[in-house]
C-alpha cells in the first residue's frame, strides 16, 4: 500500500513538474547592444591613406552616419525533412537575387531605432538592453538609413545635413590639399542600404548579460577615391582646395561601395562573466 502511495505521489510530482516547464524549446536572453566607431589596429581613428602609388593622406574632420537597424542571425538550417525530400529531386536554386529575402529568415536579435553615429568619437554608443534568442550568432546585418522623424525635420541643420551620411575630410599630398564637404544618399531600396554578412570575430551563442558591439571602421571609406581627379585645373596648390561635391560622382561611388562592404564593420560578442570576447 505504501509503495502504491509512493508511486502515486511520484506521478503527481512528475505531472506538476511538467506543468511548470513549458518545454517549447528556445530561450530568451537579455543582452546589451552597442555601436562603436573604431580604428584598425595600428591606425588612428579618422586617418588613412589612399591606395594610389603616391598615396594621399586622408584625415576625416567630421563624419556622421545614420544607422537604421541592426540584426543578428543564426546559421541557416542545412535542411528540413521537407526540404530534404525536395532537395533530393530538384536542382539547387540559384540565389542570384531573391528580392528582399537574401537574408530571409528570422533574426535572433534586432534593434530598429535610428541612431546617429559620430564616427570620430570612439566612445561606444549604448543602445540598451534587449531580448534576444539564445542561439549561435552566424552573421549580422546593418541597415543604413535616411533621416526620419525629427532628424528629417531638422533638414540641412541636422547632424548629417539631411543625408544618410555626412563627411568633412581633408586629403593631402605634397602641397596639394583638398577639403571636401559632402553628404551621401543611397536610394531607398532595402538591398542597396543593407550591409549583410557581417561576421562575428568569434562565433558564439547569445547568452544572458552578453555585450554585443557593432564596430564601424570609417577610415576605410575613402581609400579608393581618386583624389587626383578632384583637383581643379589651374590649381597652384598654395591654398587648400575647398570642394563641395554633389552626387553622383566617383567620390560618392567609391564611398558607397566602401560603406556597403561588410569589411567596413565588425561584430564582437563579449560574455558577461569574463568580459572577454
Amino acid at each position: 500500500m505504501g509503495r502504491q502511495i509512493a508511486l502515486l505521489f511520484l506521478a503527481l510530482v512528475a505531472l506538476l513538474w511538467s506543468c511548470l516547464v513549458p518545454g517549447t524549446g528556445g530561450r530568451l536572453v537579455q543582452v546589451r547592444l552597442a555601436l562603436q566607431p573604431r580604428a584598425r589596429e595600428g591606425q588612428v581613428l579618422g586617418r588613412s591613406q589612399s591606395i594610389d602609388p603616391e598615396p594621399w593622406s586622408i584625415e576625416i574632420l567630421e563624419a556622421k552616419l545614420i544607422i537604421g537597424a541592426l540584426y543578428l542571425f543564426p546559421p541557416r538550417p542545412l535542411f528540413s525533412w521537407q526540404a530534404l525530400r525536395l532537395l533530393f529531386w530538384l536542382p539547387p536554386k540559384a540565389l542570384a537575387h531573391a528580392g528582399d529575402d537574401n537574408e530571409g529568415g528570422n533574426a535572433i536579435l534586432e534593434h530598429l531605432d535610428q541612431v546617429v553615429v559620430d564616427l570620430l568619437d570612439p566612445t561606444p554608443i549604448d543602445l540598451g538592453a534587449r531580448l534576444g534568442e539564445s542561439a549561435v550568432v552566424d552573421r549580422a546585418s546593418l541597415w543604413l538609413d535616411h533621416p526620419r522623424g525629427d532628424l528629417a525635420r531638422m533638414g540641412a541643420s541636422g547632424p548629417t545635413r539631411g543625408h544618410l551620411a555626412w563627411v568633412h575630410l581633408r586629403a593631402k599630398r605634397g602641397f596639394t590639399c583638398l577639403e571636401i564637404r559632402t553628404g551621401i544618399d543611397i536610394p531607398p531600396t532595402p538591398l542597396r542600404r543593407r550591409v549583410d554578412r557581417i561576421r562575428p570575430e568569434r562565433p558564439k551563442s547569445l547568452e544572458e548579460g552578453m555585450e554585443v558591439t557593432f564596430y564601424i571602421y570609417p577610415s576605410d571609406w575613402f581609400s579608393e577615391v581618386d583624389f587626383n581627379s578632384l583637383i581643379p585645373s589651374g590649381n597652384k596648390g598654395d591654398q587648400p582646395i575647398q570642394l563641395e561635391l554633389n552626387a553622383p560622382s566617383q567620390f560618392h561611388n567609391a564611398w558607397q561601395i566602401a560603406m556597403s562592404q561588410p569589411s567596413s564593420y565588425g561584430l564582437e560578442l563579449r560574455s558577461p562573466m569574463t568580459s572577454t570576447p
Binding site: 537574408e103 528570422n106 534586432e110
Partner: peptide
C-alpha cells in the same frame, strides 16, 4: 512602413 522591418518573431 517607413522604417527597417522587424525580422525577429
Amino acid at each position: 512602413a517607413d522604417r527597417p522591418p522587424s525580422l525577429m518573431p
